[in-house]
Design a protein around this nucleic acid. Structure first.
Length: 965
RNA sequence: GCCCCGGUAGCCCAACGGCAGAGGCAGCGGUCUCAAACACCGUCAAGUGUGGGUUCGAAUCCCACCCGGGGCACCA
C-alpha cells in the first residue's frame, strides 16, 4: 500500500508558504543543525568533566529519563521502534519546560549474538557492521528530532566503556555473599563483601573452613579452592544449556519454554560443562523483596517473582536402609509439610544418586530400563504436562517420619533432579500429580483433610473421606483427619497456615526436618563461546586458578581477527563441544604478566561475556560518560540516581522513568538489578535499584500477509480488492502482529519523513493511543495529524507571503477560558504520559482559533509552547516567526490561571429515575436546595413527573439532579 | 490449567460511579478546480463483548462467562 505513503501534496500549485512535507523537511533539518551547533540538549552535571553546577541548579530539579538500550539492527529503524523514544522525548522536553534538569540520551547495545550473527551473515567483521549500523541509527534518530545529549551516547563496544564492564566483573569476582551481614539500612541481612574480608575471617579463625581443618594447614591450592567457592563470579562444572546451533552455551533466561534458544530458535541441550556463573541466587530474596520499592507494573513484578520462584516449605528426612545395610535418609522438599501424614510413597528423579543403592535385585532390570528411557528424553518432553504418568518401583521402602509407616520408593520422570532435592514425598490425596500416579499404580490414597461441602457440591458427589469416590486430589484449606501420632496432632485444625506451622515446629524439634525456602532461579550462566563480546579480564595461572587483572591492565581489548565466526554445529548434534574463537589466537591467549609474584606465564580466559553484561549498568555511564577515574563519580551518581527520601522514605534510587517493552522482564531487568545491588553492597553506589519507575510501552502492530505456502510476503506489495487481499493475482491471507522483519510488515520512518515530515510522524505516534497500549499502524491515518499542523501553521502564517499574521488584540472571555482549560489539561496529561488526550485538546483549541478567522498573539504563543514538546521543529520555527530569537526548549510551559477554570453558571442534567429528562442552568456554586428547586420548576421535569410526588431527590452540587418518583 | 492486560461508532481512541464523545481516520454533502488531487467547511455514526449483582444512577465497582494479546506451567 505504497500508494498511501506518497505525499498528499504532489500538486505544483500549492501556496508557496503552505506547511508541506517539503517545507517540514526544510524546517526540521535546519533546526536539527541549529540544536547541534548550539549544544541545546547538553545537560550539565554537578561535578566532573560535564560539570556546570550553576547551570544545573538553574535548570531545576534533576530528572533522568531513559529508553531501553537499543541494539543497532542492520535493518535500521521501523516506525514501531521510536514509539517509546518519542514518548520519552516528549516527556523530557515537557519536563525541561516545567523546570527540570533532564538527562536524556541514547547509546547502543552493540555487543552480542544478534550483532555477531548479522556480521557472520554478511561476511563482514562485526566491528564494521556494528559501526555502520550505529551510524544508520544515529542518522534516523537525529531525523526524529530527539532531544538527546550527544555527549553521553556510548556503545558497549567502545573499549572506554567495556573497560568498566570488565572492572565491574572484577568487583563481582572479588566479592562474596555473606548471608549474615546486616544491610546498611539495618533492615534485613545478606550482602556482598570484598573477598579480602573473607580471607581475613579464615585467617584469624573467625570462620570455620568447609571441612573444619585449620586454615593455615591448607595448601595454597586448597585455600584458593575454598575462596573460589565463595566468589559471586565463579567457574563451575555443572549442567548448562548447550546450543550447538549457536556454538555457545546460553543462560536459562535465554531458553524458551519449548527448550530452544530465544536467538535463532535452535535446540538446547543440558550438558555438564565448565563455565562462568554469577551467583544471582544469593540475591533471590532481595530481588523479590525490593520489588515492593519499585514503581513498576504488577505484570512485570509478577513475572520477576514467578521467575525467581520463591517457594516456602520444609525439607523432611525420610529414613531408609541401603542395599548394603547402611542406614541413611532421603531428604525431600515440600511446600505442604502439613500433609505429611498422607505421604504413602516417595518418588525419586531417575537420576537421583541413591537409586543404585536402593534398587532391589528383583526390580533392577525394570529400574535400569526405565532410567535408560528417561535419559533418552529431553527435558522438554519430560515436562509435557499432558503425558501419562510413568514410573517404576525400586523395590525399596522408606519410613514416613510422622506416621512411621513403610512407604514404597519409586522413580518417575515427572520428578526433576534440578528442582528441590530431586525427590518428593507423594501425598496422593493432596497433590494432583501424585493422585494420578497413585491411581495408575494402585497405591493407597488415604484422606488427610476433609474438603469443605462446596468442594463436593461442585463435583456432584456426597461428602466423604473415602477417596475412591474423589475425582481428583483436594488442595486447599480443610479440616485435618488421620493426622496424628504420639507427639503430634493436627486433627481438627482447619487451615493450612496453622497446619504447616505446627508440623514445621515438630520437624525442627525432633530433627526430622526444617523449614526452608527453595527457588526456581538458577545462577546466571555468564560465559559465551563467541567472539563479539567483552573478553573476560581473567588469566589462569600454572595451577589453573583464575586471577582477575588489576585495573591498570584494563581494558582487555578484544583482539583483532578475521576468523571471528564461531564454530557452530548441526543444531541437533547434542554431543558437540564449544570452541571459542578466541581459543584460536595462540599469541593472544598466552601471556607473561607480573601479578605480584614476578613475571609468570598465564593463559587468558577465552570466553566472552553475554550480551546482557553491557546493559547491566549503561545508564550509570550515561551520567558520567567520559570519567577515566571511575565508572561513575559518586557525586554524579547521587545526583542523578540517588535515593529520594523526599519522594518516599524508602525510595531506592534509580532512573526516574525507564520506558521499554515488556520482553526484558526476566533478562535484562533481572540481571541489571543484580549487578546494581552488588555494586551497592560494595559501596560504589548510593542507589539500591537501577530503575525506580518502569513504564512498558505498547507495540506498533501491523497486518502481515502469507501466501499459499504460508510464507510471509512483503506487506507493501499487497493490495486490497473487494475485501480480499492479493499479491498481484495471487490471493494472500491476512494476519496481524508486532511490526518487524520476520512478518515483513515494516514501515520505515524514512517513508514518513518524505511524505509528511518528522513532526507529523511524532504527533501521529503519540496521538494513536496511550503510550502503554499496542496499536495498529495505519499509514492512511497519518494525514490527520498533518492537517492539524497545517491548520496550526495557517493560523499563524500567511500561506502566500510567509508573513506572520497574528494580531495583538485581547482574547474574548470564551477563548481565554478555553485557553486556560487547555493548558490545565495538557499539563496534567503530559505529566501522566497521556499524550493522546493532550493532543486532542490542542487540536480543539486550534480549531477554535481557526473559527475566529484571525489569531490573537495571546493564544498563538501559548499554543506554540504547548505544542513544542510534541512537534519541536515546527514549534521552533513558529516561535521565531512570532518574533522571538531563543529556542523553545527551556522556556516556561504555559500555566493555567485558576480563575478561568471555573464557570459562573453550569448546565446540569436532570434525571427522572436515572434517565436524563431535562437540563437546567444554575450558578456553579448553587447549593442543593437551589438546584432542587430549579429542577422541580423546569417545564420538562414538571411534565415528566406528571404530578407524582418525588420519593427521593438526589442532588450532586454542580453536577446533576436525580428525581426518583 | 494459572497469572496479567484489553474488549466503547466501519477503524484508532476519549469519558472523577452522574448528559456515552475530546480528537483523528474512513463515509456522506458542499466550497475550490475544466476535472481531479490537495486544502477547507459541514455532516452521519455506537448505548459500551455476554449474563447477573451493588446503586437513586454503572462503560466505570463486584461475580461468572466469551473473545483477543502477553507471560508462566509436572516446581513438589
Amino acid at each position: 500500500m505504497s500508494a498511501h505513503t506518497a505525499s498528499p501534496d504532489t500538486r505544483d500549485d500549492a501556496p508557496p508558504f503552505r506547511y508541506t512535507a517539503a517545507l517540514a523537511r526544510d524546517i526540521e533539518l535546519r533546526w536539527q543543525d541549529w540544536w547541534s551547533e548550539h549544544g541545546t540538549f547538553e545537560t550539565p552535571n554537578p561535578a566532573g568533566s560535564l560539570a556546570d553546577a550553576n547551570l544545573a541548579a538553574a535548570r531545576g530539579d534533576k530528572l533522568f529519563v531513559l529508553d531501553m538500550f537499543p541494539y543497532p539492527s542492520g535493518a535500521g529503524l521501523h516506525v514501531g521502534h521510536p514509539l517509546g523514544f518519542i514518548g520519552t522525548d516528549v516527556f523530557a522536553r515537557f519536563k525541561r519546560m516545567t523546570g527540570h534538569n533532564v538527562l536524556h540520551t541514547m547509546g547502543f547495545d552493540a555487543f552480542g549474538l544478534p550483532a555477531e550473527q548479522y556480521a557472520v551473515e554478511t561476511g563482514q567483521h562485526p566491528a564494521i557492521t556494528t559501526d555502520q549500523n550505529i551510524t544508520t541509527y544515529r542518522r534516523q534518530l537525529r531525523r526524529l528530532g530527539l532531544a538527546h545529549d550527544p555527549r553521553r551516547s556510548i556503545s558497549t563496544t567502545d573499549p572506554d566503556y567495556y573497560r568498566w564492564t570488565q572492572w565491574i566483573f572484577t568487583q563481582i569476582f572479588n566479592a562474596w555473599f555473606d548471608p549474615d551481614a546486616p544491610h546498611d539500612d539495618g533492615v534485613g541481612r545478606g550482602k556482598a563483601r570484598p573477598i579480602g574480608e573473607l580471607v581475613a575471617e579464615f585467617e584469624i579463625g573467625a570462620r570455620p573452613t568447609p571441612d573444619g581443618r585449620d586454615w593455615h594447614t591448607l595448601t595454597t591450592a586448597e585455600q584458593r579452592a575454598v575462596i573460589d567457592g565463595y566468589r559471586l563470579a565463579y567457574v563451575s562444572d555443572a549442567p548448562v544449556n548447550w546450543c550447538p546451533g549457536l556454538g555457545t552455551v546460553v543462560a536459562n533466561e535465554e531458553v524458551t519454554a519449548d527448550g530452544r534458544s530465544d536467538r535463532g530458535n535452535f535446540p538446547v541441550f543440558k550438558r555438564n560443562m565448565r563455565q562462568w556463573m554469577m551467583r544471582i541466587t544469593a540475591y533471590a530474596d532481595r530481588l523479590i523483596d525490593d520489588l515492593e520499592l519499585l514503581d513498576w507494573t504488577d505484570a512485570i513484578k509478577a513475572m520477576q517473582r514467578n521467575w525467581i520462584g520463591r517457594s516456602e516449605g520444609a525439607n523432611v528426612h525420610f529414613p531408609i536402609t541401603m542395599n548394603d545395610g547402611r542406614a541413611g535418609d532421603i531428604t525431600v522438599f515440600t511446600t505442604r509439610p502439613d500433609t505429611l501424614f498422607g505421604a504413602t510413597f516417595m518418588v525419586l528423579a531417575p537420576e537421583h544418586p541413591y537409586v543404585d543403592e536402593l534398587t532391589t535385585v528383583d526390580q533392577a532390570a525394570a529400574v535400569a530400563d526405565y532410567r535408560r528411557q528417561a535419559a533418552s528424553k529431553k527435558d522438554v518432553d519430560r515436562q509435557d504436562e499432558n503425558r501419562e504418568k510413568t514410573g517404576v518401583w525400586t523395590g525399596a521402602y522408606a519410613t514416613n517420619p510422622l506416621s512411621g509407616e513403610q512407604i514404597q520408593i519409586w522413580i518417575a520422570d515427572y520428578v526433576l533432579m534440578g528442582y528441590g532435592t530431586g525427590a518428593i514425598m507423594a501425598v496422593p490425596a493432596g497433590d494432583q500429580r501424585d493422585f494420578e500416579f497413585a491411581r495408575k499404580f494402585g497405591l493407597p490414597i488415604p484422606a488427610i483433610q476433609e474438603p469443605p461441602a462446596a468442594w463436593f457440591g461442585h463435583r456432584g458427589i456426597e461428602p466423604t473421606i473415602d477417596t475412591s469416590q474423589w475425582p481428583e486430589a483436594f488442595i486447599g484449606d480443610g479440616t485435618y483427619v488421620n493426622s496424628s501420632n504420639d507427639t503430634l496432632d493436627l486433627n481438627g485444625i482447619d487451615n493450612k497456615t496453622d497446619g504447616i506451622a505446627t508440623v514445621n515446629a515438630w520437624l525442627e524439634q525432633t530433627g526430622r526436618g526444617e523449614a526452608t525456602i527453595t527457588y526456581k532461579l538458577r545462577d546466571w550462566l555468564f560465559s559465551r563461546q563467541r567472539y563479539w563480546g567483552e573478553p573476560f579480564p581473567v588469566v589462569y595461572d600454572a595451577d589453573g586458578y583464575p586471577h582477575t587483572l588489576p585495573d591498570s591492565m584494563l581494558p582487555v581489548e578484544l583482539p583483532e581477527t578475521d576468523s571471528f565466526s564461531p564454530r557452530t554445529f548441526d543444531p541437533d548434534d547434542e554431543f558437540s563441544n564449544p570452541e571459542s574463537p578466541l581459543d584460536r589466537l595462540d599469541d593472544w591467549v598466552t601471556i607473561t604478566l607480573d601479578l605480584g609474584d614476578g613475571p609468570q606465564e598465564y593463559r587468558r580466559d577465552t570466553n566472552v561475556m553475554p550480551q546482557w553484561a553491557g546493559s547491566c549498568w549503561y545508564q550509570l555511564r550515561y551520567c558520567d560518560p567520559s570519567n577515566t577515574e571511575a565508572f561513575i563519580d559518586p557525586v554524579v551518581e547521587e545526583y542523578w540516581v540517588g535515593p529520594q527520601p523526599d519522594a518516599r522514605p524508602d525510595h531506592p534510587g534509580g532512573v526516574d522513568l525507564y520506558v521499554g517493552g515488556v520482553e526484558h522482564a526476566v533478562l535484562h531487568l533481572l540481571y541489571a538489578r543484580f549487578w546494581h545491588k552488588v555494586l551497592y553492597d560494595l559501596g560504589h553506589l548510593s542507589s539500591k535499584e537501577p530503575y525506580a519507575r518502569l513504564f512498558n510501552q505498547g507495540y506498533v502492530q501491523a497486518y502481515a500477509y502469507t501466501d499459499d505456502r504460508g510464507v510471509y510476503v512483503d506487506a507493501k506489495d499487497v493490495e486490497e480488492r473487494d475485501g480480499a487481499y492479493f499479491l498481484g493475482d495471487r490471493p494472500v491471507d491476512r494476519e496481524y502482529g508486532k511490526m518487524g522483519k520476520s512478518l515483513k510488515n515494516s514501515v520505515s520512518p524514512d517513508e514518513m519523513y518524505d511524505a509528511y515530515g518528522a513532526d507529523t510522524l511524532r504527533l501521529y505516534e503519540m496521538a494513536t493511543g496511550p503510550l502503554d497500549a499496542s496499536r495498529p499502524w495505519e499509514t492512511r491515518d497519518v494525514v490527520g495529524m498533518y492537517r492539524f499542523l497545517q491548520r496550526l501553521w495557517r493560523n499563524l502564517i500567511d500561506e502566500q507571503t510567509g508573513e506572520c499574521i497574528v494580531v495583538d488584540e485581547p482574547l474574548s472571555d470564551e477563548l481565554t477560558k478555553q485557553l486556560h482549560r487547555t493548558i490545565d489539561v495538557v499539563r496534567t496529561e503530559m505529566d501522566a504520559l497521556r499524550f493522546n488526550t493532550a493532543i486532542a485538546k490542542l487540536i480543539e483549541l486550534n480549531n477554535a482559533v481557526t473559527k475566529l478567522g484571525h489569531t490573537p498573539r495571546a493564544v498563538a504563543e501559548p499554543l506554540v509552547l504547548m505544542a513544542a514538546p510534541l512537534v519541536p521543529h515546527v514549534a521552533e520555527e513558529l516561535w521565531r516567526t512570532l518574533g522571538h530569537d531563543d529556542t523553545v526548549t527551556y522556556l516556561p510551559f504555559p500555566e493555567a490561571d485558576a480563575q478561568y477554570l471555573v464557570d459562573d453558571t453550569v448546565e446540569v442534567p436532570v434525571q427522572i429515575n436515572g434517565k436524563v429528562r431535562s437540563r437546567i442552568v444554575v450558578a456553579a456554586e448553587a447549593d442543593r436546595a437551589t438546584m432542587e428547586a430549579t429542577a422541580l420548576a423546569d417545564d420538562k421535569v414538571v411534565a415528566a413527573i406528571d404530578g407524582a410526588e418525588p420519593k427521593k431527590i438526589i442532588v450532586v452540587p454542580g453536577r446533576m439532579v436525580n428525581i426518583v418518583v
